[in-house]
C-alpha cells in the first residue's frame, strides 16, 4: 500500500512537470485560432464571393478530416519539401510543438469561426438597425453593438470548444512531444501500471478543464446583462463626456 502511494506520487510529480507543455500548446493555438477565426468570420460575410469561398473551403477541409492527420501532414509532410528543409522555416517545422500548434490553429479556427458565424446570425437585427439609426457605421457599429451581443451569444459554445482543444493537445504526443499524455505513455510503457497512470493523468486534465470552464463561466456571468443586478446608484446630474 505504501509502495503504491509512493508510485502514484512520483508519477503525478512527473506528469505535473509536463503540464506547462500542454498549457503552452493550448494557449498559443487557442489565441491564434481565435484571431484566425475572427478573420474567417469576417470573410464569411464579405460581399465578394472569393473570401466566402475561402472560408467555406477552409471549414470543409479542416472540419472534415481528423486533426491527427493534419498534424502528420505538417510534421512529416513539410519535412520532405526541399525549400522548407533547407530554408529558414526549417527551424520551425522541425519542432513538433510548433507543428502541433500550427495544425491546431488551422483546425480549431474552422470550428470557432462556425461558432462566431452562428452567433453573428443570432444577433438581433433590431440592435444593429438601432445602431445604424443613430448614425453608427463600420467599425464603431461592430465594436459597440455587434461584438458585445456576439460575444455573449458565442461564449457557451466557445467554452466548449476550448475544452475540446485541451483534449486535442494530447495529440502532440504522437509526434514525440512530451506533454501530459506523452509522459503518461512513457511511464505506462516501462511500468505497466496503466490504471494508476491513467487516473493521475486524467485528474490533471480534469483539473485544467475545470479551471478553464470555471473562468469562462464567470466571464459568461459577468457579461450576462439579463442577470446583472440593477445599479442602485442614481444617474449623476451631469454626465462626463464620453472619451
Amino acid at each position: 500500500m505504501g509502495e503504491h502511494l509512493t508510485f502514484i506520487g512520483s508519477v503525478t510529480a512527473q506528469l505535473v512537470r509536463a503540464v506547462p507543455v500542454t498549457l503552452l500548446i493550448l494557449a498559443v493555438s487557442g489565441v491564434c485560432a481565435t484571431v484566425l477565426a475572427t478573420g474567417l468570420t469576417a470573410m464569411s460575410v464579405a460581399r465578394s464571393p472569393l473570401p466566402r469561398l475561402i472560408q467555406r473551403t477552409w471549414t470543409f477541409l479542416f472540419r472534415g478530416t481528423p486533426l491527427i492527420l493534419q498534424i502528420f501532414m505538417i510534421y512529416y509532410g513539410f519535412a520532405m519539401v526541399p525549400w522548407i528543409r533547407h530554408g529558414l522555416l526549417w527551424a520551425a517545422f522541425r519542432d513538433p510543438v510548433f507543428c502541433t500548434c500550427l495544425a491546431m490553429t488551422c483546425c480549431c479556427s474552422a470550428y470557432i469561426a462556425e461558432i462566431f458565424r452562428g452567433a453573428l446570425a443570432a444577433v438581433p437585427r433590431g440592435e444593429i438597425e438601432a445602431g445604424r439609426a443613430c448614425g453608427m457605421t463600420g467599425f464603431l457599429l461592430l465594436r459597440r453593438v455587434i461584438a458585445p451581443s456576439l460575444i455573449r451569444i458565442a461564449l457557451p459554445s466557445y467554452s466548449n470548444e476550448i475544452i475540446m482543444m485541451t483534449k486535442s493537445t494530447s495529440l502532440a504526443s504522437t509526434i514525440t512531444v512530451l506533454d501530459i499524455t506523452g509522459v503518461a505513455q512513457q511511464v505506462i510503457a516501462h511500468s505497466y501500471r496503466t490504471l494508476d497512470v491513467f487516473c493521475a493523468a486524467a485528474a490533471l486534465y480534469l483539473l485544467i478543464n475545470a479551471t478553464l470552464s470555471t473562468l469562462l463561466t464567470a466571464l459568461e456571468r459577468r457579461l450576462d446583462v439579463d442577470r446583472a443586478p440593477t445599479p442602485l446608484a442614481p444617474i449623476p446630474p451631469t454626465l462626463e463626456p464620453l472619451s
Partner: peptide
C-alpha cells in the same frame, strides 16, 4: 468527456 480520447485508448491498449 473531459479526458483526451488518446488517453482512453492508451488505457485500454495497455490495460
Amino acid at each position: 468527456r473531459g479526458v483526451p480520447e488518446l488517453l482512453v485508448i492508451l488505457l485500454l491498449y495497455f490495460g
